[in-house]
């Protein structure tokens, strides 16, 4: 064996050791998109509605000394129901990244309170039942989050923690009072709330279907409660006739405060429950990384 072969053997040995030391090139960084649907259940819910008695449930006022007051109430949260989510994220490396997601309540759960003999006037003999429906509109939660994952080749565990910025938080309320005189009053109200930041946390698992596509499933938590700000009357019918203009003159918007200030105010504010626990699933797609191609000039090409 000649000196050249020996030298080549030396180089080959050293180079192979170098390759053994270096890690595989990191192709886990980059942008990705995520979309999914899920269903949210109330978490840390409440039952008592300071304006209408209950958010969800039934009451039965006694009309005689032989009957007793009975009630049934449910714990609720105004972010429960069917959700859709869209997100854009960036992984700095295979383990850590950031994400901005939008979670929209596409079919919010409607809550009903039914009060049998809610109004009882012994003197006149008038008895009335009340039915209240409450539902949030297209509640949207914007969440900037930190993402962490195990970055396995096929299966991947991940967590996501961040802030929850609630948008479009109005609650639509319909109140129907039906009296034994035949009168039916229907109030349409809108409850607005003050902006407050909440938090969300998620743990899930994803499976790599192809080079850039993954399917994922997760459990998420939203921790949020908003203070009621104002109650607007947007409609009133009495036996299907519009009575809103007359009513609005004497009953303007009800403002809700934590402090009455130097003058007596209408009502104290209260916390509206928005926390939930949700099961979600969907797809994510990793964007291709752009690679720079070295152009070979004809002059250099000809030399080779």
């Amino acid at each position: 064996m000649n000196k050249t072969s020996l030298a080549l053997l030396l180089v080959l040995c050293k180079v192979s050791l170098l390759f053994a030391q270096t890690s595989l090139p990191d192709n886990n960084s980059g942008f990705y998109m995520r979309a999914g649907i899920g269903y949210a259940f109330p978490q840390a819910g409440q039952s008592y509605d300071p304006i209408h008695a209950f958010y969800s449930g039934t009451t039965n006022n006694p009309v005689s000394s032989n009957s007793t007051f009975t009630f049934s109430q449910d714990k609720i949260s105004f972010s429960s129901g069917l959700h859709g989510s869209l997100a854009l994220g960036y992984m700095f490396n295979k383990n850590v990244g950031v994400e901005l997601s939008a979670d929209m309540c596409v079919a919010a759960r409607k809550y009903n309170y039914s009060g049998t003999t809610y109004f009882v006037d012994s003197a006149s003999g008038i008895i009335g039942n009340r039915s209240v429906d409450q539902k949030s509109g297209m509640l949207t939660i914007l969440s900037p989050s930190l993402v962490m994952q195990t970055a396995g080749d096929k299966w991947n565990l991940y967590t996501r923690l961040g802030f929850a910025l609630p948008l479009n938080t109005d609650i639509d309320i319909s109140v129907e009072n039906a009296f034994n005189t035949g009168e039916i009053d229907i109030y349409t109200e809108k409850l607005k709330s003050k902006f407050t930041i909440g938090y969300n946390a998620t743990a899930g698992v994803s499976y790599k279907v192809s080079g850039n596509m993954k399917v994922w499933a997760e459990m998420s938590l939203l921790s949020l409660a908003l203070d009621a700000d104002e109650l607007d009357y947007v409609g009133l019918t009495v036996n299907q006739q519009n009575y809103l203009p007359q009513f609005a003159q004497n009953h303007p918007t009800v403002y809700l405060y934590k402090s009455s200030g130097t003058y007596p105010a209408d009502n104290r504010t209260f916390a509206i429950p928005y926390s939930n626990m949700a099961f979600n699933m969907g797809l994510s797609w990793k964007f291709h990384k752009r690679t720079v191609v070295n152009h070979v000039t004809p002059h250099k090409y000809n030399r080779q």
Binding site: A44, G45, Q46, S47, Y48, T68, F69, T70, F71, S72, Q73, D74, K75, S223, A225, A271, P273, S275
Partner: peptide
């Protein structure tokens, strides 16, 4: 949460978050 428990008052949520 319901009046099955005779003489019970209506339950309320207590905040612990």
């Amino acid at each position: 949460l319901n009046s099955n428990n005779y003489d019970a008052n209506m339950a309320n949520s207590i905040p612990f978050s």
